Computed example of a mutant assay.
Amino acid sequence: MKQIKLTEDEIEKRLLHLPDWDYFDNAIHGEFEFENFKDCFSAMSRIAFECEALNHHPEWKNVYNILTVSLTTHSANGVTPLDFKLAEAIENIVEPEED
């Protein structure tokens, strides 16, 4: 399914719901800190399943307990709703809601 590139205003409005994310360099970016490397790698493994399910894959890097994620849709040359869908899935994995 072809993804439509969002405007900067649309991106900024959607980011209000994702306070840990920023928009720059034509992508949305999040950085997450974990207790240790094992917890970080475990979250990355869970995120990988979401990526496959959405057929959308981040640019990411991991240094010890820090995970840095950049999301953009290359085929649309910018940020699309699909990037936000994956960002929300990542948020639910790295910061699950407390009951």
Score class of each variant (00 low, 15 high):
L15S: 13
N55S: 15
I66S: 08
D22I: 07
V94T: 08
E10V: 07
D9A: 15
I90A: 00
V79A: 05
E35W: 06
G30I: 05
E98H: 14
N36F: 13
E50W: 01
T72F: 02
F32P: 02
C51E: 06
V79P: 03
E59Q: 15
T80I: 02
E33L: 03
C51I: 06
I4H: 12
V94F: 07
M44W: 00
F49G: 02
D22Q: 14
S45H: 02
V63D: 10
K61M: 01
Y64V: 10
N55W: 07
V94W: 01
A76D: 11
E52C: 05
E35H: 14
I66Y: 05
E33N: 05
Q3K: 06
G30C: 00
D9S: 15
K61G: 06
R14Q: 14
D83T: 03
N36L: 13
A53E: 14
L82Y: 04
V63E: 07
R14T: 04
S42R: 11
T7G: 12
F84Q: 03
F49A: 08
N65I: 06
S70F: 10
I93S: 07
Q3F: 10
N62W: 02
G78Q: 04
S70L: 09
S45I: 04
F49H: 08
K61V: 07
A87I: 01
E12T: 15
D99A: 12
F32R: 02
K2F: 13
E52G: 10
P96S: 05
N77L: 08
F34K: 03
W21P: 11
